[in-house]
Simulated assay, not measured.
Amino acid sequence: MNSRQLILVPVLALVGGASIAMEATEFPIEPSVLTREAVKSALAQARADGEIVRGEASLRADPPFVAVRTREEVRAEAVAAAHAHRVDPLHTGG
Rank of each mutant, 00 (worst) to 15 (best):
L8K: 09
A57Y: 12
F65K: 05
R86E: 14
V68K: 13
I52T: 03
R69L: 04
E56H: 11
A38T: 11
H83Y: 05
R54S: 06
A13G: 11
T25Y: 09
P10R: 00
A84K: 11
A42K: 07
P28G: 14
L43V: 15
R75L: 04
R47L: 02
E30T: 12
T25H: 09
L8M: 07
V9W: 00
H91P: 01
I52A: 02
E77M: 14
E26T: 15
A61F: 11
L8F: 08
S41C: 01
P63F: 12
T35G: 07
E30R: 10
L34K: 12
I29H: 10
A13E: 02
H83V: 09
R54E: 11
T35I: 12
A24E: 03
A57G: 13
L8C: 06
V79F: 10
G16M: 01
A78S: 06
L43G: 08
V66K: 01
G93H: 06
A67N: 13
L90K: 12
E23N: 08
E30N: 10
A84S: 10
H91N: 11
S58V: 07
G55M: 14
R54V: 04
P28V: 13
T70Y: 13
G16D: 01
D62M: 05
A81F: 03
V74Q: 11
E26W: 13
R60Y: 09
S41T: 06
G17H: 01
I20F: 08
P10C: 00
R69F: 02
A42V: 02
F27Y: 10
M22P: 00
S41I: 01
L8W: 05
Q45R: 08
R54A: 06
E26Q: 14
A46M: 05
M22K: 07
R75F: 04
R75H: 03
S19K: 07
E72R: 15
F65D: 03
P31Q: 14
A46K: 04
R75V: 04
A82D: 06
R47V: 00
P63V: 12
P64K: 06
G16Y: 00
I20E: 02
